[in-house]
Design a protein around this nucleic acid. Sequence first.
DNA 1: GATGAATGAGATTTCATTCAT
DNA 2: TATGAATGAAATCTCATTCAT
Lengths: 207, 207, 207, 207
Amino acid sequence: MTNLIALPLGKREVTKAANRLAILEAAQAVFGELGYEAATVRDIIRRTGLASGTFYNYYRSKEELFEALSDDAARRLRPILRHQYETAPDFQAYIYGAVRAYFSFMAQEHETWQAKRPVGERQPIMHAETPEMTFIFHEVRDSIRAVIDRGDVRPVDADYLAGAAIALARDIGQQMLRRRPIDIDGATNFAVKMILGGVPALPTLKP
Amino acid sequence: MTNLIALPLGKREVTKAANRLAILEAAQAVFGELGYEAATVRDIIRRTGLASGTFYNYYRSKEELFEALSDDAARRLRPILRHQYETAPDFQAYIYGAVRAYFSFMAQEHETWQAKRPVGERQPIMHAETPEMTFIFHEVRDSIRAVIDRGDVRPVDADYLAGAAIALARDIGQQMLRRRPIDIDGATNFAVKMILGGVPALPTLKP
Amino acid sequence: MTNLIALPLGKREVTKAANRLAILEAAQAVFGELGYEAATVRDIIRRTGLASGTFYNYYRSKEELFEALSDDAARRLRPILRHQYETAPDFQAYIYGAVRAYFSFMAQEHETWQAKRPVGERQPIMHAETPEMTFIFHEVRDSIRAVIDRGDVRPVDADYLAGAAIALARDIGQQMLRRRPIDIDGATNFAVKMILGGVPALPTLKP
Amino acid sequence: MTNLIALPLGKREVTKAANRLAILEAAQAVFGELGYEAATVRDIIRRTGLASGTFYNYYRSKEELFEALSDDAARRLRPILRHQYETAPDFQAYIYGAVRAYFSFMAQEHETWQAKRPVGERQPIMHAETPEMTFIFHEVRDSIRAVIDRGDVRPVDADYLAGAAIALARDIGQQMLRRRPIDIDGATNFAVKMILGGVPALPTLKP
DNA sequence: GATGAATGAGATTTCATTCAT
DNA sequence: TATGAATGAAATCTCATTCAT
């Protein structure tokens, strides 16, 4: 989402990049609000102020936009999560770093994530069908599996643990965003304590 | 989904009840597979063998069907969860009872909860927009709040805890359904340990 | 286009058959007026008085409708052309019979073929992209080839001859429809004389 | 398509002329391949390497381009056909000269007239909506009418005869282009024999 | 002029809902 | 009440044309 390359760009290029960005951000907001299925290309394009046809100058379909958003999330989150994974001295530190990075990420993009919705709209409990969610889910699960496989953590059920940790963090993250003020530290503290507090109690897996 | 009221019914009434039931069951399966938005009324009605127009003799809209399904889940699950809540000697026992009841319920209705999808289709991580989920979320959150308010549990963040517990249970429940054999005890054990293990570590809420 | 099966049909079936027929006829007219590419599903459905969505209860797409129309033309014309082919004592008689059958067919369906067009519209010279045309072209070419292969006609260039005969008949047929009164005999006479008169003059093909 | 006027032109004018020519040629090819309706402005402009907006510096619309192409064909073909018409000693010679000129013209511009299409695509029998065709049709019909009016040919149905002759020549011309080697003499011979052979047999028109 | 992204009218298609039978 | 075709609003997508650079 950030234009890291600082080359002189003509107005046209700038506009094009800005439009692409605007569509991505609008899509992120709309998917967050409505979920993938309920979101329409119109909902997204309307938010950008662009014309309907313009959407198709950038993405061939809603599906492709979803992929682009996933890629975007991956590009921005993966290095952070990878860094946590590689530098954390132990499982505890990894979980802490990953959860905090994730919550910070969510909070940073909060204004697009949590755009004001029409009141009276059915409020879904949660929209997992969001590109960021999809990416995070797979990324973190793989890390947790790896940690367990490496033996850094007592042999517990890796899939259960990863699923539980992610589900938990996702939910708390969303709640965090709904509260004022947004308290990253508090949410991180809560989520990490829940996850790490639970692990020692887990049944050991017989190999 | 079971007709607990056993009064003598005329043929017409029997058929009506059977159709209503068939629609509910089909809807549960289809919403579970596709989510609320992606599911079409025709997807649902096709499973029942009824004609599409017949749907509207029973429900005024797709929306109303969703509500009915929520009510249905509520009617069936609430007594169970309430019973756990009222008879459990302590918080630990309540969580255990509630999780176990929930997993048993999922396993019982397995075929509708976890219907197989065409391979290659984009697999959403989760469909939160399921009537049962919506109901359970609110019910359990209220129970946890009550327990905390009563002082049976250290004053922690009830919303975070409820959300975390439910998210966690939901995820593990779904994983449980994908495994063979379906191991209710194992899943319950894991989920309960995670939830209860985490609670003592949680930060105390300053009132 | 004719409902040859005379079974008692409910009103629903009748309506359905009538609608299918109406769409076919409208499509025939619209393809004839505008050609396949320029014709839109809307143009077709508008003529029937049906709602736009109704089209898709009968055909999945414009393409499928085209196929259906081709099949329809084939079903109605093939027996006639085949009969001419099989019963004609010689090439002359076959050409006469085939041309006459074709012109009669066109004249019969004239009211749908030649619906009034908005004035000022660009008048294409000809629309070959019509299901009937496509079918006839292939059918008659095959017959002429067969006749020549059997040696009933001097060895001339079969493809050239078939193409020429069909192109010629098609054009004269269309002109015939534009004239008042429609003179099937006159048009047949002209077309057949042209075709048969030309054949003796054609260069013999060296094998 | 050739710039017959050899005046000194500035650089700008040369480019302009070249672009205009490139667009005409591309359009001829694309209309030939896809027909007027199915051809898009982008299909045409893509072949020229120009930008889509540039198209509108040369032609106000797709429609106008079509007209321009007709005019172009007229400008190039009319003198040839006129010359045949004026110098031919009799009807036979005129037909021969005209058909030959037309076939030579087609063969010369073969690559644009008969571009190869993706296989498997629905092959329309013919695209009459081609500017050249439109022009030729009217031109030749007028000539034939004139010949008949002058009494050089027995009074037959001029419109039928012109239509038949043109349809026939068009079809054989197209077949000629598909064969290897391209045999202008053979095709001319065939077409002329067909046309002229048929004429004596035609019914005389009562005035 | 040349460029190519933006525009928006219009085409195709889907689907919740209605309604005649 | 059951049926299933009809409806039409709304969604997706295309493309001739415009316009800022």
